[in-house]
C-alpha cells in the first residue's frame, strides 16, 4: 500500500501519485529543516566573505579545487547509485538493491578518504579552525557536512545489514526512500558548498 510499483504507474495515475509520495512526510520535514540550517551557513559564509574579502581570497587560493571537484563527482555518482537502489527497492529486486547500496557506501567511503587527504594537507600546512575567518568557516561548514556524510553512511550500513532477503526489502521500501532522500540532500548541499567555498572568486 505504501510502496510505489514503477511498472504499474501511468501518467493518468495522478491520484495515486499524490497518495504514494516517496518517503514519509516526517523525512521531508527533517530534510527541509536541515537544509534551512545549511542555508544559514551559506548566508554566513557570503556575509563574512563580504566583510573580509582579502582573507577569503587568500584562503580560497590555498584550497585544492581538484580534491573538492573530485568529491563533487564522487557524491553525484553516489547519489545516482542511491536513486537506483530506491528504484530497485520499489520492484523488490534484492540483488540490484544490495549492489547499489554497496556502491553508494563505497562512494561515501571514497568521499571520506578524499576529505581526510584534504584536511591533513591543511593541517600539515599549519591551517586549522582558529587560523582566521576563512578557515573557521571552511572547517566548520565542511566538517558539519562531513558529519552528515558519516550519519548517512551509518544509515546506509543499517539498510545493508537489515535487508538481506526480498521479504525484508518489502518491509524496508519506505526506509530506503527516506535514507535515499537524506543521501541526496547530503549531495545537494555539497554541490552548493563546493561552488561557494572552492570556486566562486
Amino acid at each position: 500500500m505504501n510502496t510505489i510499483n514503477v511498472d504499474k504507474m501511468t501518467a493518468s495515475d495522478s491520484e495515486s501519485l499524490i497518495e504514494h509520495h516517496p518517503a514519509e512526510i516526517g523525512v521531508w520535514l527533517f530534510i527541509f529543516a536541515d537544509m534551512c540550517i545549511f542555508a544559514m551557513y551559506f548566508g554566513v559564509f557570503v556575509w563574512e566573505k563580504n566583510l573580509n574579502p582579502a582573507i577569503f581570497a587568500e584562503g580560497q587560493a590555498t584550497l585544492s579545487a581538484q580534491l573538492g571537484g573530485l568529491n563533487t563527482v564522487i557524491l553525484l555518482i553516489s547519489s545516482y547509485f542511491a536513486a537506483k537502489a530506491v528504484h530497485s527497492a520499489r520492484v523488490f529486486n534484492i540483488d540490484a538493491y544490495r549492489r547499489f547500496i554497496k556502491l553508494t557506501i563505497f562512494c561515501g567511503l571514497a568521499f571520506l578518504c578524499v576529505k581526510f587527504v584534504e584536511y591533513s594537507d591543511k593541517f600539515s600546512a599549519g591551517f586549522d579552525i582558529a587560523t582566521n575567518a576563512f578557515y573557521r568557516n571552511y572547517f566548520s561548514f565542511t566538517g558539519f557536512h562531513l558529519l552528515h556524510v558519516i550519519l548517512g553512511l551509518s544509515f546506509l550500513a543499517w539498510l545493508l545489514f537489515s535487508t538481506k532477503t526480498a521479504e525484508q526489502l518489502k518491509e524496508n521500501v519506505k526506509a530506503s526512500e527516506g535514507v535515499g532522500l537524506y543521501w541526496h540532500m547530503v549531495d545537494l548541499l555539497w554541490v552548493v558548498l563546493f561552488s561557494l567555498i572552492y570556486l566562486v572568486p
Binding site: G26, L29, F30, I37, A130, R136, S140, L147
Partner: peptide, 27 residues
C-alpha cells in the same frame, strides 16, 4: 512520527556546540 524526525533534526541542530571553545572572538 514526524515529531520523531523533527527530534532528530533538533539533535543535529544542537550538534555544533562543541565548537564553542575554539572561538574567542564573536562569530
Amino acid at each position: 512520527r514526524w515529531m520523531s524526525y523533527l527530534a532528530l533534526w533538533v539533535a543535529v541542530g544542537v550538534a555544533p556546540t562543541p565548537l564553542v571553545p575554539f572561538f574567542v572572538e564573536a562569530g
